[in-house]
Write a protein that binds this DNA or RNA. Sequence first.
RNA 1: GGGUAGUUAGCUCAGCCGGUAGAGCAGCUGGCUUUUAACCAGUUGGUCACAAGUUCGAAUCUUGUACUACCCA
Length: 507
Amino acid sequence: MSDIQNKSDNNISHNADNHLIIERKAKLNQIRNIRKNAYPNSFKPTITAYELHQKYDEKTNEELNGIMINVKVAGRVMLKRIMGKSSFITLKDNNYNIQLYVNKDMVDSTIHQEFIELDIGDIIGVSGVLFKTKTNELSIKINSCELISKNLRPLPEKFHGLTNQELCYRQRYVDLIMNKDTQDLFIKRSKIIQSIRNTLLIEDYLEVETPMMHQIPGGATAKPFITHHNTLNIPLYLRVAPELYLKRLIIGGFNRVFEINRNFRNEGLSTRHNPEFTMVEFYESYANYTRMMEITEIIIRNTAALAIGSLEFEYQGTLVDLSKPFDKLTICDAIIKYNPEYSKNQLEDKDFLRNELHRFTNNINKNASIGMLQLKLFEETTESKLWNPTYIIDYPVDISPLARLSDTDCSITERFELFIVGREIANGYSELNDPEEQAMRFKKQVEQKDNGDEEAMHYDADYINALEYGMPHTGGCGIGIDRLVMLIANAASIKDVILFPQMKPEC
RNA sequence: GGGUAGUUAGCUCAGCCGGUAGAGCAGCUGGCUUUUAACCAGUUGGUCACAAGUUCGAAUCUUGUACUACCCA
């Protein structure tokens, strides 16, 4: 800890003080000289700005004068309009504004002086009486004013706010102070997660927590972060997925479980990738992938209904419709539907697929199965066209090491991915519950790892051990919550829906 | 990893056929009795991201580096 502390000490004052900050620090020093504590903690508001508007917006000035409502409110000074005798401040309390008013002749001169000397950004507590101005704005005629926390760093410009995207991400606290849209988005995110949780609880799922630190990373083909446990002196991996632990719980006898939590993948940063991201994974025994598609559909509709109140909405300027049953297509059917120039015969011809793929990429595995070639062509030609919700089903077994084989075709699995606005939102399957088959699949993964595939899975002997106790047939699914929030909140980048996205260090 | 654009005052932005660095807001001083992006007058504030080059002279032209955004792999 102390090492890290010492290193970070170097950047503590990375923004050198300008004259604005020097002036405000001087003000703070004055306050320290006058008061015992410049950061008092005794002010207790009696009402919030939101409640004030709820209760009193409809009242007239005469009605308010008649009942003389005394209130105590706290918040941040956002705007000042100082005039000779009458002065106004716009106070922001938990994202709602309330106007404060003071008249020089009607209060003690020190209160008036303190009021007009407040800086934009200061956090204050006031008490006063409600009234309405000429323009019918609910306001508080203050009779006392206490500085609770001095603002030392000036806020961004009052009209344009903070628009510098980099600063919004790096200093989210400033973004949240200035931009109501940002606050609203993260409120929406919270509602979406609540909605997912509610839907699963109603479906009788149990919410659980499984390890974030794995001795053997598993559950997805992805490159993990690695760390070290000092006492045990072993490497630990931040999990890439909770899947194998959730299925251990199914084996343990919980019929329906889910977990909403972070996964970590050691990949690049992009508008669709943050190294830590949030997933909900849910597993239901005595179910298969058809049931998982049904419940995924319910979950996604419910989130939209709760967060935006509609199943039809715009994403980046184009309408998305969640109201109709989600389309369900195999990889080949989807290619043909969105690219009519291809025929079924062509898609079953390995040489044709290879030639076709060379138009898009030179990176084609020599040993790729026909399923893999079809998938590759799907990714190149079709994925980005799947705007309205579409389940792509029956993925090749090569890339689905934890999914159950199809009963009719042993080259494919009972697996689906859900695409909306051209992006993968969910991934689910009928779980592979045959321990011998699973052991064989793990061995294949290990071979791939030995051949240099950093994303290939490890052999998890304890998971095989668990499966050998017997796991009922089970359906499972994971939904990427960040991408779902992007969709519902109409955000272009994953950084917009993560409060503190990972950024490169500032130089 | 590759391409394109951006980086100028605390914030939002001008300036870019090279010639003393600008505005609005914020700040400071003064005025103003219901304002609301209050207004009016005056005023402080800059290593023009960083580094090298071309030039008598670079925010401006060239190259490189860093970060950010977008597109592609």
